[in-house]
Computed example of a mutant assay.
Amino acid sequence: MTTEHNSSRLVVLDMAGTTVADGGLVERAFERAAGHLGVEPGSADHAGKLQYVRDTMGESKISVFRHLFGTEELAQRANSAFEQAYGELVDAGLISEIPGARAAIEQLRAEGRTVVLTTGFARVTQDAIIDALGWQGLADLTLCPADAGGRGRPYPDMVLAAFLRTGAVDDVREIVTAGDTAYDMLSGTRAGAGTVAGVLTGAHEREALAGHGATHVLGSIAELPGLLASMAPMAPAASVTESA
């Protein structure tokens, strides 16, 4: 039996793969960054590094590069090359919203919920995505790892930063998170969010999402307003409902 807080006034959403469709740009940008550091395309080293990038989708990119390249200097060089490459791909018009994402965010806010967009990218890349989509002002707040101590996912830091900065709810169990990766699920559960929704529009399948803490798995973020509406209506934080 699970206990769900019905006050879900704070909704923390991932971007790439959850609200934003980037068509594999992370892998393309990584390949450019790896080439910049001398990783030979088609080599076993390249294949191994690319698989690690796939496996850690959702994690802070600088953390990924620290693991892959060993030293802080190389990690920073790789991260800079990645961010530049990804930004160029964004500027080329190669991203779009997940169908229904903007409408879902607008509906959530119209219902009185606070919406925060989070990412594993650096601030400059997050801003480039928001600008490319015309999403300025769409969410109440946007956060990248540097805004929350630098660790990013799977740590709970960005979710907790959203909790602290917005003051939208009094109890972490009233937080709703949504993402497309196992690391998104871990971040939400570690923050104590009462609703941790996985979506099937990005990197990881249902089994990975459920296995890392998803309380619900949705076809896409467009289904989130309906999910929250199907729960008990928003009420004071002290009110809870029991469901089997």
Score class of each variant (00 low, 15 high):
Val176Tyr: 07
Arg102Pro: 12
Glu111Gln: 15
Phe82Asp: 02
Glu83Gly: 00
Asp170Ala: 15
Thr195Ile: 15
Gly192Gln: 14
Val116Trp: 12
Gln84Arg: 14
Gly167Ser: 06
Gly150Ser: 09
Ala78Lys: 01
Ala103Val: 14
Leu186Asp: 05
Asp184Gly: 11
Thr114Val: 12
Gly134Glu: 10
Asp180Gly: 10
Ala178Pro: 02
Arg77Lys: 13
Ser187Gln: 14
Glu72Val: 13
Phe163Asn: 12
Arg102Gln: 13
Ala128Arg: 14
Ala178Met: 08
Arg113Gly: 11
Glu205Leu: 12
Asp184Asn: 09
Gly137Cys: 04
Asp171Asn: 15
Asp127Arg: 15
Ala161Pro: 01
Leu74Cys: 00
Ala101Tyr: 11
Ala103Leu: 12
Ala148Phe: 02
Glu106Arg: 05
Ala197Ser: 14
Arg151Phe: 00
Val172Asn: 13
Val124Ile: 09
Asp131Asn: 05
Ser187Pro: 01
Ala197Val: 15
Gly137Tyr: 03
Arg165Glu: 14
Leu94Ala: 14
Ile95Tyr: 10
Arg153His: 00
Ala139Tyr: 08
Arg165Pro: 08
Ala197Arg: 06
Ser187Ile: 02
Thr118Gly: 04
Pro145Thr: 03
Asp170Phe: 01
Ala75Ser: 11
Gly152Val: 00
Asp171Met: 07
Leu143Val: 04
Thr118Ala: 05
Trp135Val: 00
Ile175Lys: 02
Asp140Leu: 01
Leu117Pro: 10
Asn79Gln: 10
Ala168Arg: 07
Thr201His: 09
Thr142Ile: 12
Val172Ala: 13
Gly152Met: 00
Arg165Leu: 13
Asp140Ser: 08
Arg190Gly: 13
Glu88Tyr: 01
Gly202Val: 13
Gly202His: 12
Thr201Met: 12
Cys144Phe: 01
Gly150Arg: 00
Ala104Asp: 09
Arg77Trp: 00
Gly120Asn: 08
Asp131His: 01
Val116Phe: 09
Pro99Lys: 07
Pro145His: 01
Thr142Ala: 12
Asn79Phe: 05
Gly137His: 04
Val169Cys: 10
Ala128Cys: 04
Val169Leu: 11
Thr71Ile: 03
Glu111Met: 07
Gly194Asp: 14
Trp135Cys: 03
Pro156Ala: 15
Leu133Pro: 04
Gly202Ser: 14
Tyr86Trp: 07
Val172Cys: 13
Ala122Thr: 00
Asp170Glu: 15
Phe121Met: 05
Asp147Glu: 03
Thr71Phe: 04
Gln126His: 09
Val115Lys: 03
Gln76Cys: 03
Gly93Glu: 04
Met185Ile: 03
Thr166Ile: 01
Gly198Leu: 09
Pro154Glu: 05
Ser80Leu: 12
Ala103Met: 10
Met158Lys: 03
Asp140His: 08
Ala148Trp: 00
Ser80Phe: 05
Val115Ala: 02
Ala203Arg: 08
Ala161Asn: 03
Gln76Phe: 02
Asp157Ser: 10
Ser96Thr: 13
Ile98Gln: 07
Thr189Met: 14
Ala197Tyr: 11
Thr181Lys: 03
Glu72Tyr: 06
Asp157Ile: 02
Ala104Val: 07
Glu83Val: 07
Gln107His: 09
